[in-house]
């Protein structure tokens, strides 16, 4: 068969290039190094705090963070905050990604609309959104709406830009092929344009979640009736630094879980990208 001629046999590679992986290239070594770095960092922090090299009230200490996590995380207050923040992030992620993607698709598909609205995107997107938090809070009060609007104002523009470029960068050969084959309008959109935009849009969505979290927490830190951002401000102003770290760990864990979910979804949706 022709296939056999197309891939060079492994034996053809000079033996020197595929020599046994060296010790420091092995998987085990890399994992061990990672664990070691984390342990060393935590140990140094703990010692520095215990020895008084750094002020414990300002820098906390890992053992203290651990205790705070056990105390704070299961508490009524923590769960309430997590729920408030989570709901706002969820709502803004859904609203922001749907509206942003739709806007991007429309701009990408309509040259007229794109030339009208396109020039506004970059200037508006360059406004530091967190600076708008006081404004949104003044308009919407200490409500979830204020948080959501701030987060959406970040997410929307990222996804608009993302979807717009995804749609416009459809492979020219594929478009020509599709037209010759007889695809038009709706079927062209559904069978060629949208599927080829999916990988780019997915990368955008993954990024977007982190920004939705950022927007909500930032808004809560400025002013809110509850949420993890509000807790961070509260505990740091009362020098309960260990609890602040506990909340940061919690936020990190949420982001990691979400990222993992995105990976799983991506693997399912984009099987065709794996050779």
């Amino acid at each position: 068969m022709t296939i056999s001629t197309m891939r060079p046999a492994p034996a053809a590679t000079p033996a020197g290039n595929i020599a046994r992986p060296r010790a420091w290239q092995s998987r085990t070594f890399i994992n061990a190094a990672r664990v070691l770095i984390c342990v060393a960092f935590l140990a140094l922090w703990e010692i520095a705090s215990r020895q008084g090299w750094v002020e414990e009230t300002l820098f906390g200490r890992p053992s203290g963070v651990w205790t705070s996590m056990l105390e704070y995380l299961p508490s009524e207050r923590s769960l309430e905050s997590l729920r408030a923040t989570g709901a706002a992030v969820g709502v803004s992620f859904v609203i922001g990604s749907i509206s942003g993607t739709l806007a991007g698709l429309i701009l990408g598909l309509s040259p007229t609309l794109n030339s009208i609205f396109g020039p506004f995107l970059a200037p508006i997107n360059s406004v530091p959104r967190i600076a708008l938090a006081p404004l949104f809070i003044a308009w919407f009060g200490l409500t979830m709406t204020a948080k959501v609007v701030l987060a959406v104002s970040i997410v929307f523009f990222i996804l608009t830009e993302n979807a717009r470029s995804a749609v416009r960068s459809v492979d020219a050969d594929l478009m020509t092929m599709a037209r010759v084959v007889g695809l038009k309008r709706a079927s062209l959109l559904l069978k060629v344009v949208l599927p080829s935009a999916v990988p780019t849009m997915f990368a955008g969505l993954r990024l977007t979640f982190v920004y939705a979290l950022l927007g909500v927490v930032a808004s809560e830190m400025v002013a809110a009736t509850g949420g993890l951002g509000q807790d961070i401000v509260l505990y740091s102003s009362s020098y309960q630094i260990n609890t602040v770290f506990a909340i940061l760990v919690e936020l990190m864990a949420v982001a990691i879980v979400m990222n993992w979910l995105f990976n799983a979804a991506e693997r399912r949706l984009l099987v065709w990208q794996v050779s």
Binding site: S187, K191, V192, P195, S196, V198
Partner: peptide, 27 residues
């Protein structure tokens, strides 16, 4: 008309069979 390109112009998200089906869908 059947049009064939230098680069395959296959839809990467479709299987081989679904790619071959494409012109049949529009017909």
């Amino acid at each position: 008309i059947g049009y064939m390109f230098a680069r395959d112009a296959l839809l990467p998200w479709r299987t081989a069979r679904k790619n071959v089906e494409l012109p049949l869908e529009t017909r």
